[in-house]
Design a protein around this nucleic acid. Sequence first.
RNA 1: CGGGGAGUAGCUCAGCUUGGUAGAGCACUGCGUUCGGGACGCAGGGGGCGCAGGUUCAACUCCUGUCUCCCCGACCA
Length: 567
Amino acid sequence: MRFTSLLAPTLKDDPADAETVSHKLLVRAGMIRQVARGIYDFLPLGLRALRRVEAIVRCELDAVGCQEILMPMVCPAELWQESGRWTHYGKELLRLRDRQDRDFCLGPTHEELVTDIARRDLRSYRELPRNLYQIQTKFRDEIRPRFGLMLGREFVMKDGYSFHIDRADAEREYRLMFDTYSRIFERCGLRFRAVEADTGAIGGSLSHEFQVLAESGEDAIAACTRCSYAANAEKAEVRAPSASTGTSRARESVHTPDQGRIEDVARFLGLPESAFIKTLIFVREDGSTLAALVRGDHQLAEAKLRSASGASTLALADAATVERVTGAPVGFAGPVGLAGPVFVDRALHGIRGATCGANRADTHLVGVEHGRDFGDNAIFADLRQAISGDGCARCGEGHYALHRGIEVGQVFYLGTKYSSSMGATVLDAAGEARPLEMGCYGIGISRTVAAAIEQSHDDDGIIWPRALAPFAVEIVPVSMRDEAVITTAEALHRELNAARVDTLLDDRDERPGVKFKDADLIGLPLRATIGAKGLARGIIEVRRRDDGSVEEIPVEGAVARLRELAT
RNA sequence: CGGGGAGUAGCUCAGCUUGGUAGAGCACUGCGUUCGGGACGCAGGGGGCGCAGGUUCAACUCCUGUCUCCCCGACCA
């Protein structure tokens, strides 16, 4: 490909609306362009990177027996009504109406559609297992899209679904997909970690996320330094503390005017935040309320509370509800005398001399003690987010180190959630109709492109992993006025292409500095610089984008050498 | 949805406080010089200031409405 015919509008300035590195660099390198919030054009270079990821995904999935299909982006409401998600999915589901006034939605995921295929076309256990996938544009009307390709509303996703006669076979497939995903991300050249994950709104019971490790990641993941256990910090089980904390003292109330935040009260009273009990009020789906207690310096993990309380959905109570339940404005809730179910994090078991809200305006209680002052209606559970240094509950010995990650893939064991609600059954060997056991497996293709950049870049631009680079080699003729330079560059370009090495020839009549800057920005793994001085000595200079190392190679045999370096 | 910020040339921004009919750098066009890390000179082209109203002799500047984009949002009990 010639630069002069490539649409690659590189920019010197960072775009004003970009925050993250990948967003800035993708735009600056002329790979994507924003069209509306969370919606982007892919320009040729960006598309090529996207296609690289797709190709790896296809290759690995096809190799383990998956079959590619393509389902519609516009989905009829009926199927979503059948599964119940038409009413439950929420505002992320973009609904539309056609000219006949029929309801449709843009598919944010395709369990309904694929289950519909399965129930129509799969009849017998003999036709199982099946694993169907598609690579397609998805739409989720996110509340707050951000960070370019990281959290778009429209994005490219590979979603796969498998069908089995029983749970054992579904779990076998789950493990197969787990291994396949590991291979896919390895091939992409990414540093990642597979972590146990919450199953979230989709449901199911067994799930791993594939997290690309990057400082800018939005997910916190906890990995044991001793064993192989790693999990989303939301889910990572925290080992129960061995000893209770604090010293006993008499309970008394203190006047804390306008001190509603733990941070403020802690300063006001000169106490550490860890000596506080944080009391949060939640509302269940049916409108009933419950309280959750964590230590002042800890964060509640909503997913844990959800499973401890058995509530399918939980929402933090609004100010009016808090006042009704606690009898005090927001900021002064506490467990003492609080009615209703109270879920308590294990770190508070046996706590003494603690401080909490008094359920009275502008008042806190000090010297609060578990057992003496609260606990009758307490249900103890692991409720908080893991933090660095927490004990690993899995091996019982190690401790957690926290990392930031970008979720690029997830594998789920789904069970019969959709097959049951949508009547997707097959006959088993005994001639009995059984709902299909299902698994589902996703990879954020466009997000993977962004994640690769978050993980691999420098001040000058992108540093593509070989496997994802839009081109393998960029040829930079230092001058477009020098016959020998041009001839050599053209020949190299031609021969590399013939040798199936994707090559970009920067044939623009620009000064060398401009070309070098753009080459660094675009970030192809190898740059072959051809200049008059080098040619006089019969050499071409090859520079690696990742470590900046330079190798001079003879013009004779340059193709073979470059091909070697490129693979 | 709540809070904050911003919409002026392709990009990054200045100009609005104190209304008088729009500017810089980069990019772009032509010519010349230059040519191994974002060159230089000269000469050019391009926007009427998100949109719609209003006030005024006069609005990018003031007022009202509206749209779009960006950032933050249990952390508090």
